[in-house]
Design a binder for these strands. Structure first.
Lengths: 231, 231
DNA sequence: GTCTATAGCTTGATAGAC
DNA sequence: GTCTATCAAGCTATAGAC
């Protein structure tokens, strides 16, 4: 079923491959499998088979299975954080208080992820599906997400606070939760909207997401802020 | 850690317990464990220990492990669907075309779930966490969600279409995806917003969700519909 | 219906040859 | 660095006593 053909690695014979390439190959294989089946749904043997290497090598490079998972999660997290931070800094630098909008800030926060998913190749698709799963994992998901992604979220909230100073932090945090739920489900491309809409929509169509999600979230934020302000 | 004390069942000695009670006890135990750790993260032995019954009984009542999981998933799905269908029918019956609003329809769709989660006890909390996980599972989540929850979603979309006839189905389906991402993440109460907001918000505070989510989603729908109408 | 006992695999991880 | 071989533990599932 998932018994894909073992992938050859590096140049020439496998035994000539460099350790560094092999590490990346193992991470790629683990990433795809963890994204589809979750941590417990994957065995180290499956990862080895998918990567075309021996089981023992996985433990040689990464140690225990959980450490392999963490290595997968860490690998792209920093890239993501830097892209988002740069995007939001650029937006703030390009605007003054008068021209900044809630939608603009939200777009600067979300768009890097959509763009990376569209242009980054299949590894990134798997990674987003993985993060979406972790995001909804009660046992250790909240803590893991916090460890890697809290700083950039605080940057978002603070920037929104400068755009709407009358907004309460409570409202901004709740709205962020709504936003991240929508964003992560869209990025994970589960295919549910395809069958639900009977072909009208495709979860792989991130351009359609881009055309709607920013406006949707921005209007949501504004409505919640306005509701609380008048109360 | 999760080695909770085996729960006694029924009246008097365990051996006197009725089979029906035992089945429910096993389902309760399985529900809580699957919700926290996912399908592959739970063993039938753990379920048996948590329920205070023997491993063999689980297979006697439910067959294979996957069938146990399906039984857990099915048990509350129908109750949920009936509550939501009734809520939406009641809303439509109580209003005419002039007084129906997008926010009213959305509230009729979401509020039953919030209410059940608030009043239904810990079993329902686990169930929502479970559904949230399935919702974000690429491998078989989309198909499973579709099998159990598509009809009531179509009812939502059709009702919204009567309230906003100029809206395109494409937009309604995409907005539904955004809505369900927010709703499911809120219902799963992962605790992330607690640490993120440094105590300002608590994921268990569904009253706070109620005060914001309906308005948030309704404004999002309206914004996307309006954007497309003028384009 | 419920328990004991166990069959038959698969798992994560390692020791040691090359 | 990479592979062969293997271990101890844990897994699902069942057969059969009561």
């Amino acid at each position: 079923m998932t018994a894909a053909k073992p992938r050859a690695v590096g140049r020439g014979r496998p035994s000539k491959a460099k350790g560094l390439d092999l590490k990346e190959t193992i991470l790629d294989a683990a990433e795809g499998l963890f994204a589809r089946h979750g941590f417990h749904g994957v065995t180290t043997r499956q990862v080895a088979a998918e990567a075309g290497v021996d089981t023992a090598l996985i433990h040689y490079y990464f140690g225990a299975k959980r450490e392999l998972f963490d290595a997968v999660f860490v690998r792209r997290a920093e890239i993501l954080n830097q892209a988002r931070e740069a995007s939001m800094n650029a937006y703030v630098a390009a605007h003054d208080a008068a021209t900044m909008t809630v939608e603009g800030v939200i777009e600067a926060f979300i768009d890097p992820l959509l763009r990376i998913s569209q242009d980054g190749g299949p590894g990134w698709k798997s990674y987003f599906a993985l993060v979406a799963q972790v995001n909804n994992t009660p046992a250790w998901g909240g803590e893991t997400m916090a460890r890697f992604f809290d700083p950039v979220v605080h940057q978002l909230v603070e920037t929104l606070k400068t755009v709407r100073p009358q907004a309460e932090y409570r409202d901004l945090y709740w709205c962020y939760q709504f936003l991240t739920g929508s964003m992560m489900l869209s990025l994970s491309e589960t295919g549910r909207i395809d069958s639900l809409s009977e072909g009208e929509c495709h979860s792989s169509d991130l351009e359609a997401v881009r055309q709607r999600l920013f406006a949707y979230c921005a209007a949501g934020f504004e409505a919640v802020i306005a509701k609380h302000a008048k109360a």
